[in-house]
Amino acid sequence: MRNLARPLLFAFIALIISVILSIAVGSVDISPKDMLSVIWNTLQGIEGSTQLASTYQTILLTLRLPRTILMIMTGAALAGSGCAYQGLFRNPLADPYLIGAASGAGLGAILSLSIQWPASSFSYLFVPMTAFIGALLTVFIVFQLAKVGTTLPVTNLILAGVAVSSFATALTSLLLVNASGELRRALVWLLGGSTMAGWKPVISQLPYALIGLIGLSVLAYKLNVLQFGDEQAVQLGINVNRTRTMIVIFATLSTAAAVAFTGVIGFVGLIVPHILRRITGGDMRRLLPFSMIGGALFLLLADIIARVLIAPQELPVGIITSLCGAPFFLFILRRSKGKDW
């Protein structure tokens, strides 16, 4: 059996270091000593004693910490759903963007953002929900278009995915052009910037991401058996249609949770599972959790870079993931020479 204790330990240590970095780095750098004292004070329920300490406390607790958690959840959700889509379609190119789920989620999210809700807290709750509905609708349309009889050829799926995805993106852009006042913010959202600060997005995202990722983890073994193709999976006792529908729903939930608050962040769902498969092998029971940790780590690091590169201004994190992701992915692709699937 593959020994994964060491990679797992390494991933956890890297994740912890990134979390500390993510909290420390930004337009105001907070030293580890100050960070510890803020955490200590907060745990004891003490308000910052000095002016500076109370500012640090505010930055840490209302800005950096929720953002860090948001990035971890988003990265895990993107890589987890990407891993599930790749397994489901037995294609290393399948990811939330390629089959249209992400664009549909984006359209849904923008729709609910462009509506003037009576109370602002409502909009936060509705964003992931409309994103989920949008994503599910898109995936359903793509499925219907790609289906031939009872089979689902991968080429059809990707063609339909690209077409429907472009359509949804065009609709999203149309809505953005009309949303005059919020244009700048929406544009940043589209480029994959986490512009919504505070705990509200974290709390609204959490249930969707958790249900999606836990659901996928429970189905991991059946996803293994599905790797043999529909016919052999049936002969090994799997109810293929039901299993596949459930995996699509859970993966789409995760995608929607990720897209709703951070916008379009490419390449995480594509490259993270792709690279980690070399370490963990094909068993989804190991690849899925590893992808989640890996995705969280990758996005968190990208976010830190996005914050320091042109400080005090911030880059949208989606730019960083694509700038790092695309060349790295091409490098891997070239080295593997199509040995993968």
């Binding site: 059996m1 189905l219 073994y221 052999q232 090994l236 092998g281 993968d340």
Partner: peptide, 26 residues
């Protein structure tokens, strides 16, 4: 067809023959 998912170990594939007797966790 002898298609076998390439990233699995031989033992993992053979153990999938036990899938009909396993629960969700495999």
């Amino acid at each position: 067809s002898t298609f076998v998912p390439p990233h699995f170990l031989v033992e993992e594939v053979v153990l999938m023959g036990r899938a009909p007797y396993m629960n969700w966790s495999g």
